[in-house]
Design a binder for these strands. Structure first.
Lengths: 204, 204, 204, 204
DNA sequence: GCTTAAACGAGACGGTACGTCGTGTCTTGCA
DNA sequence: TGCAAGACACGACGTACCGTCTCGTTTAAGC
């Protein structure tokens, strides 16, 4: 017994949904976030504007859903980080991959757009954390836990913080362009995060 | 020889400049980034739109300048971090202050707006790094260098990276709302950053 | 041989037809011609839009049919004008009735809507002339012919023109609101039409 | 001290005004009333939609103003009807001219549009009566008064009604297409109006 | 009475136009 | 001449309807 009756999802046309999300993502690449318009998405998708407004409450959620579609499509089970036993090497490889992805021009504009939307919309941020961040974070924590059990990480270490300390600097440098985002930067971050800022005793 | 003539900065009316920047900052708090308009700023500042377009090339730079005005006003010389000799305590205090500022509702919307503009405009990002980030980073590096000279930090440590590792997690959590941004979080980040993720030998 | 198959009139649901026409007429009164929409009619009639599109080619014809329904319903045979032998009195009475009907707020909006549709759609105009105008005109002509045979009207008078000369001024004043539409106006029109604009010899 | 501050007519751009009214009139001819849109007018006039909305409260008034522009432009003083002394001939000539104008395809659609707007908007109707109908009616009355003074019309004749009786049938037949609108029709109307429906004594 | 094909209600869809808002430019008149 | 005021061409907004198109669900004719 609600008013403002929500549309019936059964009647939703899947082809339109995909066309809209694809168009949104493609346009983000091509024209950038500032020039992304609902009208543009609708035109590119060959869809009426109302079809977008009917199913998505805001442009930000369209963008978010576009990423969801991308990430859910090719998945074969939950993501996993490599575990060769060499924590330093594994983390370096993964963080380098992150750097490469952030430097990929195909993802640059869309990712910045997603970041902006998350920054300004708490609900979207929650959805992001839940749907996109959580699975990756799980995998990262998983790798760290494995290292912890092998005695390679401090016993009382909060793994979520460890994840933050490793990945946040890279994301931040990318967002703010506070310096070149290179694989060397990734390497150094991993090294410093593992060993800490303080001098280590010889023999470690 | 009078095409595209740049306006004469000498004739610029200072009162209008301040009114515009103040209005921009206030409106950011009140209506948020998405609803911040040039017309709104002009109206609030009691100024013609052209006066904004004459002196600022984009809305982002108005926002940026608004922050510049704030940060340059009360300054008595370059900023400094406390140096009690106890690095852990000093860093904790400063990072806690950062957390408090980020949680201050007066700065929340404006800071997010600034962040968004930087994310999407490389030129603005460069200006940000140069004019706002650099001075603070200088102060942070300064404190770390002092510690390094006292043997409290690794000799070969890249201090810029150290700054990133300490401050990026806090900024990131704030931007993405990936978790509660508390002083405890700040404390833990400092602790982990200093000691690293690896287990320390007893006696450290 | 099955393209564009016309719907089978036998299966037509009479209740829907009446509901649609009633809804159309009522909405005309309530919201006026400009805001009359097919969706509105369908909603008010508790009917799907397609049911309207299936049976009526245009909104104008729905309106027209609504009038047809009204006029055909209470009919017991063809309409007749009173014939007391006193032509002046009879015409005055009938034209006064016309004025009263045009001034009735229940019919004002619907009639204006009908008029507009007729004005812009020649086919509809033909239907109007045939189905609504003709029967009334017949009755009017009948009364005039009776007077003509009694020697009260010129022998060679074109009765259709006589009808026009008597009724058109009233309709026109109503449509254009070029002046108050009163029974006195009707009276004067009849008087002038009968006697003509020229001065009459005494003794007429 | 008003809110909803009306725009300042001094700042109005005359060229835009003319372009809009011309475009509106031309489009009425070309696409007809039903397909006349504000967007279409703006596009054809090379003007922003807002410029139309700023100065005209409704589409009907744009149409009305388009006619005003047409009628005020070529005027050299108030309009006059021919006065040869032969009332019958003069009226016939003028009413024939009316018929010709109504049959002119350049004016057909625009006039029907104007008629529709007047029918549905009382305010517009008042403006029409005042600005467009009144001057013509004045000229018509003038000619009739001249005839009246010459003893060719009844002394106590209400000249406004006389005008109605002569012109309304033609307008009505044109609007409703209730029959062919020919010069013969005009002739007959004049003849019948002058002599009345009743038989005249021989010698008149 | 059971089947089956239609008309039906509901409403999603690709579109068009609405009337509003903001952009960045241009013009006018005041100081 | 710098400025406030604001008109302007332009483009996007979010909404309302258009007319078409599925969907299941009646419903009435024909087997």
């Amino acid at each position: 017994m609600m008013c403002g009756m929500a549309p019936d999802p059964n009647r939703r046309r899947e082809s339109s949904r995909r066309a809209i999300l694809t168009a949104a993502f493609d346009l983000l690449q091509e024209v950038g976030y500032a020039k992304l318009t609902i009208e543009g998405i609708a035109a590119r998708a060959g869809v009426g504007k109302q079809t977008i407004y009917r199913w998505w409450p805001s442009k930000g959620i369209v963008i978010f859903d576009a990423f969801l579609m991308l990430n859910e499509a090719p998945e074969g089970g939950p993501p996993l980080l490599p575990d060769t036993g060499d924590l330093h090497a594994d983390l370096t490889a993964v963080l380098r991959a992150t750097v490469v992805e952030l430097n990929d021009p195909r993802y640059d504009q869309p990712l910045r757009a997603l970041s902006t939307e998350i920054t300004h919309d708490p609900e979207l941020a929650a959805a992001y954390v839940e749907r996109l961040d959580k699975p990756m974070r799980q995998a990262k924590r998983q790798r760290l836990r494995s290292a912890q059990q092998a005695g390679q990480l401090a016993e009382d270490l909060d793994l979520d913080m460890a994840v933050d300390i490793i990945w946040a600097p890279v994301l931040n440098r990318w967002l703010q362009r506070s310096g070149p985002l290179t694989t060397e930067y990734a390497d150094s971050i991993v090294a410093i995060a593992l060993d800490g800022l303080r001098p280590r005793r010889p023999g470690d």
